[in-house]
């Protein structure tokens, strides 16, 4: 079940890794750890890198993704028997876009500052391969209840990684956490690079390496 990154056209079927035969708790474990959308499938990293300069942004983005994957998985699964195969992609995109619009309008109405900080990245959830990948690879073949669990698991796996990156980057880049500074850290000179673009790449690179160490060697890992 390694990411299908081995073939040059692997990105065609973003997340088409499928093969999630498990149910319930098994599905949950796969989404969060063994088949984590970011560190294993390497999907949806655009927003994982872009909004993690502050922990608060990362948490909101994680919440947004959980909401959208659960919602779209549920509806794609409910509609799976009536959707003609040829138009399934466009149907999925329509369902996903609807949920993204709902979340975007919610942010704009109640959390205007956050909405402005996240900028275009809320809208970009539509093209986030995780959502599309789960709809395509899981929700199309499975009943609604398990699809909800799968959507939640993958959203959660994504949210956890985002929160981790957010913690590292805000702590090292600004010396704060959720905007609060610590007295114990007053000696630390914040390293601006961590808040800027390169810091995001470095943090995620080391995080994936750390994950690989914890997971142990895998025989079928893709070569660089």
């Amino acid at each position: 079940m390694a990411a299908d990154t081995a073939s040059p056209i692997g990105c065609a079927s973003c997340g088409g890794t499928g093969a999630c035969g498990g149910k319930g708790i098994q599905t949950l474990r796969e989404g969060v750890w063994t088949n984590n959308p970011i560190s294993i499938q390497v999907l949806g990293i655009c927003s994982a890198l872009a909004v993690t300069n502050r922990l608060a942004n990362a948490l909101v983005m994680g919440g947004a993704l959980i909401f959208v994957t659960v919602g779209s998985n549920l509806f794609v699964s409910l509609l799976r028997n009536v959707t003609p195969r040829r138009v399934r992609m466009i149907a999925e995109v329509a369902v996903i876009a609807t949920f993204v619009i709902v979340f975007d309008q919610f942010l704009k109405a109640f959390y205007w500052d956050m909405s402005k900080q996240l900028g275009p990245y809320v809208g970009l959830i539509i093209t986030n391969c995780i959502v599309m990948g789960r709809a395509e690879a899981f929700a199309l073949q499975n009943p609604p209840l398990v699809s909800i669990v799968d959507g939640f698991a993958n959203g959660l796996g994504y949210a956890i990684v985002l929160a981790l990156i957010g913690v590292v980057r805000e702590l090292l880049g600004a010396g704060t956490l959720l905007g609060y500074s610590f007295g114990a850290l007053s000696w630390y000179t914040p390293n601006q690079v961590m808040v800027l673009a390169p810091g995001a790449f470095f943090t995620l690179g080391f995080l994936i390496a750390l994950y690989n160490v914890l997971r142990g060697p895998q025989p079928e890992d893709a070569k660089p």
Partner: peptide, 15 residues
Amino acid sequence: APFQGVATAMLVTGV
């Protein structure tokens, strides 16, 4: 080994 693949790609992109 742990850095092979995506991890190194990330670091290189960072540079």
